[in-house]
Design a protein around this nucleic acid. Sequence first.
DNA 1: CTGAAAGCGCTTACAG
DNA 2: CTGAAAGCGCTTACAG
Lengths: 335, 335
Amino acid sequence: MPIVTIQTVADYARVSRATVSRVLNNNPKVDSEIRERVLQAVEILGYQPNRVARRLRTQSRDVIGVIISDIQNPHFTSIIRGIEDVAYVRQMNIVLCNSDEDSSKLQTYLRVMQAESVAGLIVVPTHADQEREALQSIQRNGIPIILLDREIEGFEVDSVQVDHRHGAYEAVAHLIRLGRRRIGIIYNDFSTGWQRYQGYIDALNEAHIPIDRTLVKTSDHKRESSYDRTRELMALPVPPDALFTAFNLVTLGALHVLHELGARVPQDVALVGFDDMPWADELFSPLTAVAQPTYELGQTAARLLLRRLNTPDAPFQNEILPTQLIVRQSCGSAL
Amino acid sequence: MPIVTIQTVADYARVSRATVSRVLNNNPKVDSEIRERVLQAVEILGYQPNRVARRLRTQSRDVIGVIISDIQNPHFTSIIRGIEDVAYVRQMNIVLCNSDEDSSKLQTYLRVMQAESVAGLIVVPTHADQEREALQSIQRNGIPIILLDREIEGFEVDSVQVDHRHGAYEAVAHLIRLGRRRIGIIYNDFSTGWQRYQGYIDALNEAHIPIDRTLVKTSDHKRESSYDRTRELMALPVPPDALFTAFNLVTLGALHVLHELGARVPQDVALVGFDDMPWADELFSPLTAVAQPTYELGQTAARLLLRRLNTPDAPFQNEILPTQLIVRQSCGSAL
DNA sequence: CTGAAAGCGCTTACAG
DNA sequence: CTGAAAGCGCTTACAG
């Protein structure tokens, strides 16, 4: 294990460590001949400046911490890609952690990130109440935080999310326009789910359709749960003629039930899901879905972070990105 | 930005930095009264030891570098989850990079990882020939490497992969057993694709079915490419009566074509895919697939790395994990 | 233009 | 049991 440090290079090039450092940092006032000698030494020795040492010395921060809640969910996967792409051009690295919707795991990671002196944090909170304080304290310590996807009430930060409420409204309005009246909904109790539920209400209200509580279900993030909720809905004396599934895993669970039941989609029950999926077209009923600009969510989060690092005192910014309803066949009509 | 360092704590507790450090590192020979005082100071000041400094000083390595080729592919996503889970219990962090199947990007990341003094690297190579040297040089510098999913000829390392050849053999043998004879294949030219192709050959040979070159197609990692290849296969004077699609993106492309063509699956053409997908059951034809133990792949890679770190001189280990054929309806029979 | 020296925040022999 | 001192690999005022 040949440890080549800046000293090795300095010795080889017969200069001081300071000079080597200057050359590597493109300090202009280095004699061109010496510069050459150093560069050659670097080349020959295959020297890689130690980033850990550099980071400690310059107190520079070139790592972005990212904490998401479910790395197996394509939604987040695409977000990460967006973050990574903007980080790459800025020569920043990302340390990725998966909280697994577990608040204590998230808080552990928060501590780690702080100890790693990350430049800033992009985080998808899981349980606002338990995490608010830890997050705020990190922010107070000068590490900027960008909230992604979910909000935390009473916590002033930069954030990006999608217009959940309007997206959901469009989805449900689409169903209503196609003549559906008994529209079941399955959502989760994160802030996103709640907002999507509001959009559902908006659409029903607009059409003067009374809210039937028996058609409203909440589910956790497990697919089994949405499976059960869908079963319950379909077992109603008068089952729904349409379903609005408020996130991708729920949609999968619901589809499974409909398939099992031999329900015809959309004839017996129409279906719109929140979250588009790359394979939406290949599903047994090509899925009409509210597509989120996931890649842009990631990009925007990263950009907000970069901006905050440049101008720490800028007012907080809350970006809301639009969704897009992609009409396929699961509701019965292109519109 | 209140910077609380070990000195702050030492002052507060009226001891030396050395003592604070000892307390934090659970050094037993610290007076219990003093220990208490330090612990209290730590608590009150909210002190987080700076990991960057610690890492530099102890030359400790507690970061695992992971370079995968496509973070949006569920295959890798599940692998990452496996890695992360074993890293978490060891209190190690992972730095994740996405090479995007781009060899120069991968090499950039390799340099970064080295400069970050990672404990070791888990990497999915993309173009063996271009990366062999860089990888070997890192290994020579004492940073262990675990190759994941794909091999590099003539490079001795620890590695994990799945039994691609046998998995493919089983898939194709399944088709043959169901009476299919004109079996098309679409694979890619990574080492994995090549091995899967061998499995296809094995099954045909065993059944004494001659290889028809017109039924053999290669595709890159883009879905469009597999779309085109499937179109070509289906446009043959005598189209195939079965398709073996050798990785998940290809399967999606093929399904799309079959859907467009109105082909009945499995009546007109049976389909087996390599790679299972969480939504395989909800596809328009529930997919019979060769499932890879992706989570275990990740776990195994991480464990191999940990083992190598413990015993640097152990002989190299090449783990081959078994696949499992999951029979659904796309081939026409549960068998 | 170049080098000696200080210091980033830790840890750990070495004395005592 | 505790502290003073050295040092991990860098960078950067400060002299010259």
